[in-house]
Computed example of a mutant assay.
Amino acid sequence: MPRESYQEKLEALRNDVLYMSEVVTDRLRMALESMQQSDEELAKDVIAGDDEVNDLYLDLEQDCINLFALQQPVAGDLRLIASSFKIITDLERIADLAVNLGEYTLDAEHEMFPEVNIHAIGQETVDMVEDAMDAYANEDADACFAIADRDDDIDAMCEDASQTVVRDLIETEVEDDTTEDEIESLMQDVSRMLLTIRDLERIGDHAVNISARTLYMVENDDELIY
């Protein structure tokens, strides 16, 4: 294979990873909107769209394997391929978490915990993922550290939200005539909200993972990986 073709394949890999990130962040935004608007049709679109993300992932995984096997890359090229391979795994998992959010929307029978601003937390996580992918596209090492620092803010927002849900549960008065079905429904609502918060926190973690792999790709620096 001519060297020019090899370099073209590396550039195509980078562009395809960026395209996959656009698809994934679009699904994530759709999932958040479906939760905010209680839009079941939009939630179903998010769930149905997971097959497209999985297909993208498998295609890119094979591209990475082919580049490893056929070209035996070294130095910067090796780090690009290895980092891209890890990043698409994080993107696929973010898409799975978006599907979770869509399923929570379908399962929700009524709105609860209005004081918990899930959409604001979700928007912060989307921004982190997009900024992490911008760092990958621009080979911006400084941005990688900044994104990792922002994860503390996401963690704090999620911790506050979880505490609010638990406090509301503790303060909820159960009347003598409250049925077991009503209690079960309440517990399901609490569980669903806590799972939503957990999944948003995990999306932030994946954004940090993407930044860590980008830093390794750019500067051969594994500081953020460990």
Rank of each mutant, 00 (worst) to 15 (best):
D176E: 12
R14I: 05
S83P: 00
N54L: 09
E109A: 14
R79H: 07
R14S: 10
Q36E: 11
R213S: 10
P2K: 13
Y226T: 14
T105H: 03
E41F: 07
I183C: 06
A161H: 03
E61K: 04
D181F: 09
R167A: 14
Q7H: 13
M30E: 14
I170T: 07
L58K: 12
A161M: 02
D151A: 13
L106G: 03
V24N: 10
C144K: 03
D26W: 14
G204C: 06
V218K: 09
Q36R: 08
I203P: 05
L101R: 12
I183M: 04
Y19M: 13
H119D: 13
L215H: 00
D177Y: 12
Q7C: 04
Y104T: 01
L215I: 09
Q62A: 10
I203E: 02
D155V: 04
Q37D: 12
I147G: 06
E201N: 08
E124H: 11
D90L: 05
D107T: 07
N54R: 07
D168L: 13
E61Y: 10
E182W: 02
P114C: 05
G49E: 03
L200I: 01
H110K: 15
E40V: 06
Q37E: 12
V53C: 00
D160K: 14
R3M: 06
H119E: 11
T178G: 03
T105S: 03
I197Y: 08
I183G: 04
S185G: 12
R29I: 05
D221G: 04
K9C: 13
R167H: 11
F113Q: 05
G102I: 00
S191Q: 02
G122A: 07
M157F: 09
H110Q: 15
G122K: 04
I65Y: 15
D50T: 02
Q188S: 10
M133E: 01
D59V: 11
L97I: 03
I47H: 04
I94D: 05
D45F: 05
T105Q: 01
R93V: 01
S34L: 01
V99W: 04
E111G: 07
D55A: 14
Y216C: 05
E115G: 00
A48Q: 05
L13Y: 01
G122I: 05
D26Y: 13
E182A: 10
M187Y: 15
D152E: 14
D160Y: 10
E182R: 08
F145M: 14
S185R: 15
E124I: 08
S21G: 06
A148L: 01
N220A: 06
I121D: 00
A143H: 07
D168P: 08
N100H: 12
R3F: 06
M133Y: 02
E40C: 11
D50H: 04
A95L: 02
S83Y: 05
L195D: 15
A146R: 12
V126W: 04
